[in-house]
Design a protein around this nucleic acid. Structure first.
Lengths: 259, 259
DNA sequence: CGAAAAATTGACACCAGTCAACGATTGTGG
DNA sequence: CCACAATCGTTGACTGGTGTCAATTTTTCG
């Protein structure tokens, strides 16, 4: 019997306090170290950046190893992504995993619920994060209403995205869910080469399936069907060509749940 | 052919600027009118309450008639619920409706996305709301970091709830979704009589189905099955008895998606 | 090059969506 | 107060989409 990585994650998540295999190659650096020259992205003014730098620690994670934190842990830090991608997920009582979000540079994650993390956060590939102590951040936000406003804007944005995700999971069939995901990815130049119409998928089929609330097999079949319908071409498992993007969005117009 | 209320809503929502049948019996009152004596709930200090009262208008809606606002409209106001319940929903491109939330007293809704409402808000039964002008609120929050912090806490809370909802829609079968909803409702004393083990359902089957990402017929069948399995008793369509709540939560432990 | 993981394809059962018809409930006007 | 209509809720019949298990192919990585 083969067990995929994330099955084991589920077991540890059910235990809810398992800290094994975490923080393997974490290298905390001072914010003023050479690697700390990267700016905190996402609409932060120079003033706000320096304010955040005062309380932030730059941390890096190796190639997808270990977790930033796991659901159920005590929460002391908020994180913001400098580079790379972080997968946010949560498990049901039955052990199933739902991927809630893929956080891109500029994104914030790790807000505590009653002092503990409700979700798990894991790097997808190499990642650089800024780690902000929650108590010091709240103090700072009290003194800097403008900065707090930026965080609030970010939260409203994340809430809207979660709600869009709810529409995908609640009202779309698997083909439409994939179409929604691809169209979403195409908004990011990091993944979409508009000239060549080539899209890079940064996540595995397992992560994608758990993000879309389905099974990896179903994702594969839906992609195969989309290819036979000439809507896309699978160049490789992580690389697809989308000759006519409007045909993808046309899928979302269909009223019926089946087909 | 019979058309249910919300089918027509879908059509107007697809038009995205239809304002007909809105604001039918809205009665705006000064905050200092007799009806304005009710306190703004939810962890607001007396200071903050009076600050909000300075910019708030008390508005009431009759028995479920009309909408507070519709997706696509220009957004000028934030709302907070004083009494009653508000249903937040959004439509897919194909016209399907997803109910995102049922906002209870103390809840906030109506955050704008690029100046427009991304969702629709409609009263469920009689409702009293506080209407806060967005531009005046942002000014106020700049001057009152503590108040802004309260709003941020509320947003984090709403985000966590949306994420829990994502787990329900993405990973649970219909019986489990209903169990999750019922267990959620049982947390509120307004709806659950723990002594008699009787739960009041404040929403219709249509709203419930759209909230759970399924069809009303499927909800009815799942409830019938739960009753035949002795997990609950339907006293009436809006009233059910739950003799052993732990049997409901036991449903959530099952790993399989089917049955 | 070999082992492990990932991705795909096949087979099959079943949950759930859809259409339809039938009760139950609510509201309204005479 | 009752007849009537409209809406809501439930049940039936049927089909298709999708979850699960299994096997095979492809890719990754040591």
């Amino acid at each position: 019997m083969t067990i995929r990585n994330d099955e084991m994650e589920q077991q540890s998540a059910q235990a809810f306090s398992c800290r094994e295999d975490r923080l393997p190659e974490i290298r905390a650096r001072s914010f003023d170290s050479p690697a700390g020259t990267a700016a905190i992205p996402n609409l932060l003014s120079a003033d706000h950046q320096s304010l955040l730098k005062g309380i932030a620690t730059l941390v890096e994670w190796g190639n997808g190893k270990g977790a930033v934190f796991t659901e159920g842990e005590d929460a002391s830090f908020i994180y913001t992504v400098a580079s790379g991608m972080v997968r946010i997920s949560r498990h049901t009582e039955s052990g199933r995993r739902q991927v809630l979000n893929f956080v891109l540079p500029g994104g914030v994650f790790g807000f505590p619920e009653n002092g503990i993390y409700a979700n798990s956060a894991k790097p997808v590939g190499d990642v650089v994060l800024y780690r902000l102590p929650w108590n010091r951040l709240t103090e700072l936000l009290q003194r800097e209403p403008q900065l707090q406003s930026t965080f609030m804007t970010r939260l409203v944005f994340d809430l809207q995205r979660a709600q869009s995700h709810l529409l995908v999971l609640g009202q779309q069939n698997v083909s439409q869910r994939i179409a929604s995901f691809l169209l979403d990815l195409m908004q990011h130049e990091d993944f979409y080469n508009a000239g060549a119409n080539v899209l890079l998928l940064p996540v595995s089929r397992f992560d994608l399936a758990d993000y879309l609330g389905t099974a990896p097999e179903t994702v594969a079949r839906a992609l195969a069907r989309l290819e036979s319908d000439k809507i896309l071409v699978r160049l490789s498992s992580r690389q697809i060509s989308i000759p006519q993007p409007q045909r993808l969005s046309a899928l979302l117009q269909v009223r019926r749940r089946n087909h």
